[in-house]
Simulated assay, not measured.
Amino acid sequence: MNRRALAATLAAAAVLTAAGCSSGAAKKTGDPTEDVRATAKRYQDAANKGDWPTACPLMSARLRGGDVQHCLDDHAANPASVEHASPSPTASPSPVATYADGSTVPPPATAKATGPDYADTSPVTLGDVIQVPAAGAHPAGYGVLATWSVTWPGKTPETDRRALRLVAEEGGWRVDQHEDNIKGAGELRTVLGG
């Protein structure tokens, strides 16, 4: 790169910085906590509602399995992807997963978009945002625990917890990993591989 091109690039960067333009991955303070929280809440609220046009763009390319359209097509082809739908009465049995303490992991729900068995889901609340190191295929980023309640007709509310890993991608924060059936915030770093 010659001096003239370098000077033009630096001048453009200075103008954008002065104008307040950024990648969206971090605020001017360098602390991305509020951006991470906002993305995590938007993603989990949308996923709980089966609102994939909102949720898919908030996922990393790795998590969504390609581009946004691929994610939308995948969820349209698989209506069972609604996050908190009624358990299917004809679901085939699957092996029961267990935690190290011997407790079992509840089976995943299957979809039923309407009708008397549809659950009422509360808004998502978030715990503290923590830094998490790279683990396996997941880059380093930030973790947060999302919590909400699900109330099935005629039943007492159940609390669901999901650990979310968010990473900087495509000029913002994207959900790159989610782990379900988290007992509490103390497990957040462990379940995200940190």
Rank of each mutant, 00 (worst) to 15 (best):
R3K: 14
L6Y: 11
T9A: 15
T9D: 15
A11V: 07
A11N: 06
V15T: 14
D31S: 10
P32A: 14
T33C: 10
E34I: 10
E34T: 15
Y43S: 03
Y43D: 02
Q44A: 05
A46E: 02
A47D: 03
K49W: 02
K49D: 06
G50I: 04
W52R: 03
P53S: 13
T54P: 04
R62H: 11
L63Q: 08
R64S: 01
G65W: 06
V68E: 05
Q69H: 13
C71N: 02
L72H: 03
D73F: 05
H84A: 06
S86Y: 05
S88E: 11
P89L: 08
T90S: 12
S92E: 14
P93V: 12
P93N: 13
A100P: 05
G102R: 07
A113P: 07
G115T: 11
G115C: 11
V124D: 00
V124A: 01
L126I: 12
Q131L: 07
V132G: 00
A134C: 11
V144F: 02
A146N: 02
T151I: 14
G154M: 12
G154S: 12
T156C: 08
R162G: 00
R165K: 13
L166E: 02
V167F: 04
V167A: 05
E170N: 15
G171T: 12
D176E: 11
D176R: 02
N181Q: 14
N181W: 10
K183F: 12
K183L: 12
G186I: 05
L188V: 04
V191W: 00
G193I: 02
G193H: 04
G193F: 02
